[in-house]
Design a protein around this nucleic acid. Structure first.
Length: 295
DNA sequence: AACTTAATCAACCGCCATTCG
DNA sequence: GCGAATGGCGGTTGATTAAGT
């Protein structure tokens, strides 16, 4: 068992290891950060417990590792999750579930913790609003046939003309002159002009009504699609003019969400206000009716 | 302005798998 | 081969901040 486990399990019986070593807990100070960064710069990562001791940090190795990986690492991206990242998270989560670390590997600079937080605070919130389980088929269909197309539409609209009304969404949409190549970071957008400095501003909002970045630069840096990866995730489904998910069609198999797609299109035709949350009161009413009628 | 509620996210917890001696 | 140490992961908590009343 690890140090923390030993510590917590013995807490009620005798003086804990934490007390003996006067281990610190809670938020990291600037000095601690500096010490950790400095030590890793000279000695590298790994062997976290001994690293913590050698560096003179009164922290557990776990705590040091977490602080480094989630916050101090130089390639950690901070700031709002972009539309593309949201789309990717939804897509990958539909494939792998709560495999946060695995999902994070496909979002350069994002940590599993950040993605996990995003999912819990944003996605699960909407499941709650819809009074359905986040793992239910209904909610998954909502994501796949309504939510993700909206994201795609917003990405396309932003790329085509950031200030113009968004085009209506259609299954197998023809993007037009924007010619975005919606490949995923897992297969190549890593780094390409996509840094902390240029990525996250509060210029617009995401599909949940939370701030998102100005995406124009990101599209310009999309690489040409490459082949499928080892996880069986085939980005070839995304060519230069279309965005589709696997089955090439965004028509719900049951027809359950086709109406939803229609109103998503209307939503877009009405301008898709950048400050609007994903679900308006009408949307919620509509979806709840759908759930109640189809549950 | 004061208070309450909601949202966010850094940090911790506990478990499991792997590595090490 | 075995037990301890360590690393890694997903789940949860709690402090802080923002928004609403």
């Amino acid at each position: 068992m690890d140090q923390e486990g030993t510590k917590s399990s013995s807490r009620n019986y005798h003086q804990s290891e934490e007390d003996l070593l006067e281990l610190r807990r809670g938020p990291w100070t600037v000095d601690e950060d500096f010490t950790l960064i400095n030590y890793i710069a000279h000695h590298g990562e790994g062997r976290w417990n001994s690293l913590a001791r050698s560096a003179g940090l009164k922290r557990t190795g776990k705590s040091c590792r977490l602080r480094w990986l989630n916050y101090l690492r130089p390639d950690v991206r901070r700031g709002n999750i972009t539309l593309e990242e949201q789309l990717l998270i939804l897509e990958l989560h539909s494939r792998w579930g709560n495999r946060w670390s695995k999902i994070a590997q496909h979002l350069p600079g994002r940590t599993d913790n950040e993605i996990k937080n995003y999912w819990r605070t944003r996605v699960q919130k909407h499941a709650k609003q819809l009074k359905c389980d986040v793992n239910s088929k209904q909610f998954k269909d909502t994501m796949r046939y309504l939510w993700m197309p909206r994201l795609v539409e917003r990405i396309q609209a932003s790329a085509a003309a950031p200030s113009a009304p968004a085009p209506s969404y259609k299954a197998n949409p023809d993007v037009g002159p924007a010619q975005i190549a919606p490949t995923y970071p897992s297969i190549g957008w890593a780094g390409a002009g996509f840094t902390r400095e240029n990525s996250s501003t509060a210029a617009s909002s995401d599909s949940f009504g939370t701030p998102a970045s100005d995406l124009t630069d990101c599209y310009n840096n999309y690489p040409v699609s490459q082949g499928g990866n080892q996880d069986g995730y085939d980005p070839a489904n995304c060519n230069n003019n279309q965005f589709s998910y696997g089955d090439q069609s965004l028509t719900s198999p049951s027809g359950f969400f086709n109406q939803g797609l229609d109103f998503a299109g209307e939503w877009a035709m009405n301008g898709g206000d950048a400050t609007e949350s994903l679900w308006s009161a009408d949307d919620l009413w509509f979806l709840q009716q759908q759930f109640n009628g189809n549950a």
